[in-house]
Amino acid sequence: MRRLCLSLCAIFLLSACLAEPEWAPEADVQRLAYADGGEASVTLITVIQTEKNEGGHTALLIDGSQRVIWDPAGTWWHPQSPERNDLHYGITPWMEAYYRDYHVRDNFHVVEQKVSVSQATADAIIAAYQANGAVAKANCTRSSSAVINDFAQFSSVRTTWFPKTMMKDFAELPGVITTTYFEDTLDLSDAEVIGREDL
């Protein structure tokens, strides 16, 4: 009986570590792709547990020839944002606000750190995360930092398991713009005015 319990525990732990592949059809990715034509940028999104001041999740909004969110091992989804292995496409302003609203709650807030890049760099970073594939649970910051620090502009970002460590490194990048969102300051209705018709 003890051997059976140990085997079942091992299977459970292994399944918890496996990545969960997802591959939206090409037609959906193409149909729902979105670009705002603005300045290319990379925005680190860090979810913070407010009471303990601990990092809970890491993601990246990448704005190049199209806007995507890299949400490694994340639970967010929307039927109008096709996903391919943790990379979500079709990130309109409304979808971006919806993603933010999903993470901000009573005891969690979101810190966003935006850095301007060239469109070529943004597109190369998107391609790098596309190539990375789906990420196993608890590896969101590890995968995010390991990929982005291959790019010269982000070479000072250390490979780390800890969301607040990556956030600290982003804070030291030249020209970074930081915005913090708490539940009492977040208003999804603002995004609806911008363009719910995109859904």
Rank of each mutant, 00 (worst) to 15 (best):
T50C: 01
Y89P: 00
G90T: 10
T92P: 01
A73H: 09
E96M: 09
D86Q: 12
K52I: 10
L87D: 06
R105Y: 08
H78V: 01
Y89C: 00
G90R: 05
T92W: 02
I69T: 07
N107M: 06
T50N: 11
V68N: 06
D106K: 14
H103W: 15
R100H: 06
A73P: 13
T75C: 04
D63C: 14
P72K: 05
E83A: 08
P82Q: 04
T50D: 09
E51P: 02
W76D: 10
G74A: 04
P93I: 12
I69K: 05
D106Y: 14
Q66G: 03
I69S: 09
Q80A: 11
I48W: 03
L87Y: 11
G55D: 03
P82K: 02
I69C: 03
I69R: 11
D101R: 10
T75I: 10
D71V: 00
T92V: 02
Q49Y: 10
I48G: 03
D86M: 09
V47A: 10
Q49T: 08
K52N: 10
V47H: 04
V47M: 08
A73G: 11
G55A: 11
G55T: 06
D86F: 03
I69V: 15
Y98Q: 14
E83F: 00
R105Q: 12
V68R: 11
G64F: 06
E83N: 09
D71I: 00
D63H: 14
W94N: 08
I69F: 05
D106S: 14
R100D: 09
I62V: 11
R84I: 14
D106F: 12
Y102L: 05
R67V: 15
R105N: 13
A97C: 12
H88E: 10
N85P: 01
E83S: 10
N85S: 12
G64V: 04
T75E: 14
R84G: 00
S81K: 02
H88Q: 11
K52A: 15
Q66I: 03
G74C: 03
N107F: 13
L44D: 03
P79N: 04
N53I: 00
W94I: 09
D86H: 08
T75L: 12
D71R: 07
